[in-house]
Structures are given as C-alpha cells and as structure tokens.
C-alpha cells in the first residue's frame, strides 16, 4: 500500500516564531523533512515540540515564519483542508463510533461510498493488526488498541503528512515499545512523511530516520540517530541524548588530552584550551590494576550490561560495560580507566 498517486511530500519550517505573551514557545525554528522521512522532534518539556506540530497541523498559528508542504506555503490553509493525519497524546477516538467507523470517518467526509469505506477501514485495521475488533467501541478497547485505531484512522484517507504528538506516553512501558516499532513498520509500509513528537529519547532514536533535538524553541541539531549520539553538535545535545561524563580536558588542534595522558579526537564545535570533555559511559574501559588511580565505588547489574561507578581524583565517573567483563571488578578495587579513541565534544569548564 502506498500513498496513491500523490507520492510523499517534504515539509519545511522556515524561521517559525510563536510567542505566547512574553513566552517564546518557538523562537526561530527551521527544519526540513524529506519526502517519506520519519523525523522525531525530541526535547525537554516546554521546548516547543507540541507547538511546532500544532502549527504544521493548522491548529495553532505562528507569530511569524512559514510552513511549506511540498514546497507550498500552507500558513493560511485551515486544518480541515491541510490533508494531514494526526494522532494525539490523549485518546481521541470518537466514543459514539465503532473502531471501523472511526477509521472510516475521514473517508466519509471525502465522499467515498459505504462499501468502499468499509473495505478500506478493514484494510487499515488489518494493517495495525486490529481487524478482529472492527466492531468494538473505543471504551471496549485497551489504550494501546485505541492508539492503533487512531493511527489507522489518521492514515486511512492517505494524508500527505502524518503527525504524532507523544502518541505512546499514556501507555505502559511494554506496550510502548511494541507500538513504537509498529508505528515505524506501518510508516515504512505506507511511506508517508511523518513528524513524531516525543520527549523519550529511546523512542526517538529507535524509530527515526532523523532526530531533531529542540531546546527553548529552537533546533539544536537534526541528524540520524547514530550521528546524533556519536557526534553531538552542542553540549545540550550531548547531555540530553544518552548519558555523559564530564572529564577535565585540554583541547588543541582537534585533539583532546584527558585523564592526564590519553589523547582522543575532539569534535567540531569543541572549545580550545582547558575545558570538560563529554564522554559516553561505554567509551570508557575499566581494567583491574593495583597501580590504577581510580577506585570502583558502585557496581549495578543491568542484565547484559553493568553500570560501574568509579572515583577518580575526587570526581565520579559512570562506566557501562558488558556484564561478563564487569565480573572481574570488585567493589573498592583499584582500576585503570582507558578512554576509547572516539571523538568527544569539549565544552567550556
């Protein structure tokens, strides 16, 4: 199944500002989503993710700036003419309609005949694995099932853009993981350009083609998940995505010296001179060594990996390593820390 005829379109935010009185919900957001791509907007609470999404949907209007869909400015187009499917954080199925009728709602508005609607509604429910519950009412469905129906409803009329605002945040952890993978599978299948808003970084990294990290109404970085993780463009991104250690460092000529004598490449955007290197917990290796300068202060077992806390010169470092390797460590034992030669970001101390 693909978006018939129309083909996927790109979406572009051009210097969006949205002011609520003195609060700057969006403060110059620019971002381009490629046709057929799934982009997650990720950021802390209140950074403007929902505001951005609502502006794309036409449910809110920018103070200045514009939204381009397929190269055309849609700023003045009302929501019901924008041709965008939307899945909300709150349960939004129409309580008086069955699952199938909910899915068929958008088709009915587009004048499709009853038989055609029914057929298409079943196809969509099939796609989200719920065709057996087609005749159930929303109050007879679980939260996860309701969100699946909502997804089917949003895609049934083959919208040019799919928008999701934290669709999984009301669900429990296990369902959340299942459903996010399902959303990604369905999205790849229909090929609709998709904007997904979340504050859950794991979710964003798992399903996106690219992740846009937002902070205070602006975009910090837009990059593929792996790149975002390995080459954060700013301190905010490095610290928001994944865990980091701050280790004193001297940077010069694209190199950084950390832990006295270890040299690693420094990322673009690093400061020169004295600073703090932001180092991922898994980029540090811990080796038992009687002459080592660090001490193991805590070992916490997390299944396949173990988190090791080490104390070094008065500061605490977090290390993640395979549990099998961590077995040779003892609490209070002396260890040596070795930094992997992956590039690090050095920020002002």
């Amino acid at each position: 199944m693909s978006t018939s005829g129309k083909g996927p379109v790109g979406v572009e935010f051009v210097d969006l500002h949205r002011h609520f009185g003195t609060v700057r919900g969006l403060d110059g957001l620019s971002l381009a989503i490629e046709p057929g791509e799934l982009v997650c907007l990720l950021g802390p609470s209140g950074c403007g993710k929902t505001t951005a999404l609502r502006i794309v949907a036409g449910l809110d209007h920018p103070t200045s700036g514009e939204v381009l869909v397929g190269g055309k400015d849609v700023t003045g187009v009302p929501t019901n003419k924008r041709d965008m499917g939307m899945v909300f954080q709150a349960y939004s199925l129409f309580p008086h309609l069955s699952a199938a009728d909910n899915v068929a709602f958008g088709l009915k508005l587009r004048g499709l005949g009853a038989r055609e609607r029914r057929k298409r509604a079943y196809e969509m429910l099939e796609l989200v694995g719920l065709s057996v519950h087609a005749d159930r009412y929303p109050h007879q469905l679980s939260g996860g099932q309701q969100q699946r129906v909502a997804l089917a409803r949003a895609l049934a009329f083959q919208p040019s853009v799919l928008l999701l605002d934290e669709p999984l945040s009301a669900l429990d952890a296990k369902v959340r993981v299942q459903l996010r993978d399902e959303i990604r599978r369905v999205q790849l299948e229909v090929g609709t350009t998709t904007l997904f808003v979340t504050h859950d970084q794991e979710e964003a990294l798992a399903i996106s083609d690219r992740v846009g990290v937002m902070n205070a109404g602006r975009l910090e970085q837009l990059a593929a998940p792996a790149e975002l993780y390995s080459s954060p463009a700013s301190q905010f991104v490095a610290e928001f995505v994944g865990l980091t250690n701050r280790v004193p460092a001297q940077a010069r000529d694209g190199r950084a010296i950390v832990l006295g004598d270890q040299e690693v490449p420094a990322l673009a955007g690093s400061v020169a001179g004295d600073g703090l290197a932001l180092i991922r917990p898994e980029a540090i290796a811990v080796e038992p060594d009687e002459q080592g300068t660090a001490t193991v202060t805590q070992l916490s077992f997390r299944g396949p990996i173990t988190q090791v806390h080490c104390e070094l010169g008065g500061s605490e470092l977090l290390v993640q390593m395979a549990s099998a390797e961590a077995q040779q460590l003892t609490l209070g034992g002396r260890v040596r820390l070795v930094i992997a030669p992956a590039p690090v970001l050095v920020v002002p101390a």
Partner: peptide, 19 residues
C-alpha cells in the same frame, strides 16, 4: 468529554465546524 481533542481530531480528518 475531551471536546477539544475530539474536535481537533475531527478537524484533522477534514471536518468543518458544522460537522
């Protein structure tokens, strides 16, 4: 009922205010 969300959902599906 969550009128706002229901209305926004319906609007995004293409419904005018009367609908």
């Amino acid at each position: 009922i969550d009128v706002t969300t229901l209305a926004e959902a319906a609007r995004s599906l293409g419904a005018g205010w009367f609908t």
